[in-house]
Nucleic acid binder design. Structure first.
Length: 281
DNA sequence: AACAATGTTCAGTC
DNA sequence: GGACTGAACATTGT
């Protein structure tokens, strides 16, 4: 699930339901997800504290933590990355929802064995990172500065400067979290489709007007994905399969690997040389 | 059974 | 340093 929109939705969940509840137990049960995992490290760092503020940059969430009853000194930041399939579950009642997500059952529902990290609160509730593929990460004091500006906050001018250089394919540049943080594979295809720019176009060969359309595509794709529940609600998502056609013009969707990731684009409107986009059909 | 999957990282190479 | 490739990580779903 997780690209910027899903992560923002998760952050809002934490901010709305998990703050200011005293942490009584820390179940860092998965030494692969909770890294680096030394015995009791997370428990010792977090027990007795509360989550105070939930931040996000790109796909990284981190929570400031409060002091304990013994010491007013704030604790470390708790970093959470959802990886490819992670999701955050926050529940008020421990008994009624053990192992599951509140109000959801059946196919697709989180299974208890996917619980990789759980904070138990004094009031009986919990916060859990559920992640079937175990590519999510929990760690203390994550390196936020390794990330570029957040894709939702980057200014138009910054965006131009970060994007329009080098020989790399523009999609690969959009996926580079150290340049701009938060764009994932689905979102990159959606943004470039909205902007009518080929994903394979060298970043340094973009014209100002191309970068402007990409920037506008980014703003609108982000807003729409957050409002609709995630990156998978984009228009391109529905046609990323053999035989898929462009929702705008009806041409066949092209498929290849760009930036190491599966990539779909409109074969008519997103021409590699950048010339066809303005030819209205 | 083979393959692809919304992510990151690291080694090797040019 | 920049860019590219491939593999690795671990697991599920088609």
């Amino acid at each position: 699930m997780p690209e910027l929109p899903e992560v923002e939705i998760a952050r809002r969940l934490i901010a709305g339901k998990a703050l200011h509840r005293r942490i009584t137990r820390v179940e860092d049960v998965d030494p692969y997800v909770c890294r680096p995992h030394t015995a009791g490290q997370l428990r010792d760092a977090l027990a007795g504290r509360t989550l105070a503020v939930a931040h996000r940059r790109g796909k990284l969430i981190w929570c400031e933590t409060s002091g304990t009853e013994q010491s007013g000194t704030p604790g470390p930041d708790l970093g959470i990355h959802l990886g490819m399939t992670g999701r955050i579950i926050v529940v008020a009642d421990h008994e009624a929802t053990e192992g599951g997500e509140p109000l959801r059952r059946g196919a697709g529902a989180p299974r208890p064995e996917w619980n990789r990290f759980t904070l138990r609160f004094a009031d009986g509730g919990r916060l859990t990172l559920s992640d079937p593929r175990r590519l999510g990460r929990v760690r203390l004091n994550p390196d936020v500065d390794a990330l570029g500006p957040d894709a939702g906050e980057v200014t138009h001018q910054e965006f131009r400067e970060l994007i329009m250089k080098g020989t790399i394919a523009v999609k690969a540049r959009l996926l580079d979290q150290s340049k701009i943080a938060g764009i994932g594979n689905l979102l990159a295809d959606e943004v470039l489709w909205q902007a009518k720019v080929s994903p394979a176009r060298p970043a340094g060969k973009l014209r100002g007007e191309d970068a402007d359309r990409i920037y506008r595509g980014l703003r609108s794709a982000l807003a729409s994905a957050i409002a609709n529940g995630g990156s998978h609600t984009g228009e391109v998502m529905a046609v990323r399969r053999p035989g898929g056609i462009c929702p705008r013009c009806g041409a066949e969707m092209g498929h290849s690997i760009v930036g190491g990731r599966s990539t779909w684009w409109c074969s008519r409107e997103q021409s590699p040389d950048g010339s066809v986009w303005c030819t209205q059909v």
